[in-house]
């Protein structure tokens, strides 16, 4: 999925930005072949399409196994929900890493924080809570900003594409979002693009991947 309405033409979209960020941190990147044909399978699983999910997940696992040379290289997921889904589905010995831990373990040690932001808002998506990475998310954010507001919330209710189909669930889930964001804060970060759509809608501020934040403060 592409950029949001706050992002202008000069802004890189997430895939490009991630590429640049990793290269700056000294990495070479291996992409799976036929990247476009892959999906973690979660959109199918959520709708009850167990078989389609299984097919997708298996195909992804096989391809990742191949390009990572049987699990030799760590595999970065840029979205927490996809990571969580693969973590639940995969059986092969792959080193899959969630976006937060990857930044903490591999990227930040190789970059210098040049200009910390004064205030940012962070929304921990459900997968972050389910894998127990709340503390790590706060730690990562605090590397990048003086003041970090962590939104207290249940699931935002966007739930993949449910936010488009049953928008009242998303509105209800985020009914207390705006009140929690400090008045002087207009930057929100998370680790799931679909959640960000609803977060942006309910808060009226720019919600993007936390990779943008890391890229900005290290440049």
């Amino acid at each position: 999925m592409g950029k949001n309405k706050f992002q202008d033409a000069d802004d890189l979209q997430l895939t490009e930005l991630t590429h640049r960020l990793l290269v700056r941190a000294g990495f070479s990147i291996i992409y799976p072949e036929s990247l476009d044909a892959h999906c973690c399978g979660m959109p199918f699983s959520s709708k009850g399409f167990a078989e389609a999910n299984h097919t997708q997940s298996k195909a992804l696992e096989a391809d990742l196994l191949k390009v990572s040379e049987n699990g030799k290289y760590p595999i970065l997921y840029d979205m927490s929900p996809c990571f969580y889904h693969s973590k639940e589905e995969f059986t092969a010995p792959l080193k899959i890493v969630d976006p937060i831990q990857f930044m903490l373990d591999f990227v930040l040690p190789n970059l210098t924080i040049k200009k910390k932001k004064s205030t940012v808002t962070v929304f921990p998506v459900c997968s972050v809570k389910k894998i127990g990475k709340m503390e790590q998310l706060v730690l990562l954010s605090k590397w990048c900003a003086e003041k970090v507001t962590v939104i207290e919330s249940n699931c935002c209710g966007f739930a993949g594409d449910r936010g488009f189909l049953v928008p009242e669930l998303n509105d209800y889930g985020l009914r207390n979002l705006k009140d929690q964001i400090p008045a002087n804060c207009n930057e929100g970060y998370s680790t799931s693009r679909t959640c960000e759509i609803g977060l942006e809608k309910s808060s009226g501020i720019n919600f993007r991947s936390i990779f943008y934040l890391i890229d900005e403060v290290t440049r």
Partner: peptide, 16 residues
Amino acid sequence: IPEMPKGAVKINIKPA
């Protein structure tokens, strides 16, 4: 909704 994302640009990096 106005917040619906724009279409992304295809990742244009050859597998290497």
